[in-house]
């Protein structure tokens, strides 16, 4: 395939709103008619290159490809790859492009997938690059919201926790900004506020947003509550991490003033920011999100490989 004809997914904005709608429609069809898709990627191979550990995202990609009848190869940490010998990202990608039809990569450095896309002869999916972007999590979140709310417009989204390093938050904002009438409530400690360039993006788009520190105060107005983990791996200083990690813990008590149809989301893994008692509340959707993640990744792999499922 010619390099300039290859579609990649580096940032959520690589996809148009229409294309996201198409992916959501495919994911919904996959849920209803899985048998239509079970051999769609027969004889195709997905490489999962995880230079940074992640159980959930990697397994989601692998499960998605296997459910499409394809095969999977790859590594799950930089230590088990030639990166530990000092090989560059560009060289690794050049080599793996000879083995696989599509690559999903996670890397701790921001922008690593941009380099991969410049060098690869196959589609690249960014499965997370440092604190930067995580577009397939965003697709997962959009599918979850779409399924639970029946729409992607006209709602108030509360984003809570680590808004500074939380790449899922950045990608979700960038994606939802393209839909009508979305308001944002940004709930974080001062040290973990949304970065200025993201606030500029909100202002330039004319979006309504408020920054507050109290989760309880925000609760009654929210249609979506997106909780995040304070990520130890993003801190250079352990003391800062320890001081900030317990700032927000969602409990059943804090949900008392919430809307009855609130959708509680979390990209997982959870540490302690959502009490396990909340799991039993029907508004808790974070485990359902992981199922949505598999369906949307199946739809994405088909899209990037240009494969249409056979009609049943």
């Amino acid at each position: 395939m010619q390099r300039d004809k290859i579609r990649n997914l580096i940032s959520i904005t690589d996809l148009s709103v229409d294309e996201i709608d198409e992916l959501i429609a495919t994911a919904n069809d996959i849920e209803k008619n899985p048998e239509k898709y079970q051999d769609a990627c027969a004889h195709k191979q997905l490489a999962t290159l995880f230079f940074e550990p992640s159980t959930r995202t990697r397994l989601s990609f692998e499960s998605a490809m296997l459910s499409l009848g394809g095969q999977v190869l790859g590594f799950s940490s930089a230590n088990s790859s030639s990166a530990s010998k000092g090989e560059s990202v560009a060289d690794t990608i050049e080599v793996v492009g000879n083995y696989a039809d599509i690559i999903a990569m996670r890397h701790p450095k921001e922008g690593a997938p941009v380099i991969a896309a410049q060098r690869a002869s196959v589609p690249i999916i960014n499965a997370g690059d440092g604190g930067h972007f995580h577009p397939t999590q965003t697709l997962t979140d959009l599918l979850t919201i779409s399924r639970k709310k029946g729409r992607l417009s006209d709602m108030t989204i509360g984003l809570c926790g680590d808004l500074k390093f939380g790449r899922t938050v950045h990608s979700l904002i960038e994606a939802t900004l393209r839909y009508k009438n979305i308001s944002y409530v940004l709930i974080s400690p001062e040290e973990l506020r949304l970065p200025d360039y993201m606030l500029d993006m909100l202002s330039e788009a004319g979006a309504r947003y408020e920054e507050i520190t109290s989760l309880e105060e925000a609760m009654p107005k929210l249609d979506i509550l997106y909780m995040t983990r304070v990520q130890r791996e993003r801190f250079f200083n352990e003391e800062d991490y320890v001081r900030l990690k317990d700032t927000y813990v969602l409990t059943l008590e804090k949900l008392e003033n919430a809307k009855k149809d609130l959708v509680i989301m979390h990209p997982l893994p959870r540490v302690n920011e959502i009490s396990v008692k909340v799991d039993e509340d029907e508004r808790a959707c974070y485990f359902y999100q992981t199922l949505c993640g598999k369906h949307i990744r199946m739809a994405l792999i088909l899209f990037l490989l240009g494969i249409k499922a056979k009609e049943a």
Partner: peptide
């Protein structure tokens, strides 16, 4: 100058 940027480690880009 972002220490998390890939340009901080990838050679000759």
């Amino acid at each position: 100058k972002n220490p998390r940027c890939i340009t901080s480690t990838e050679q000759e880009i």
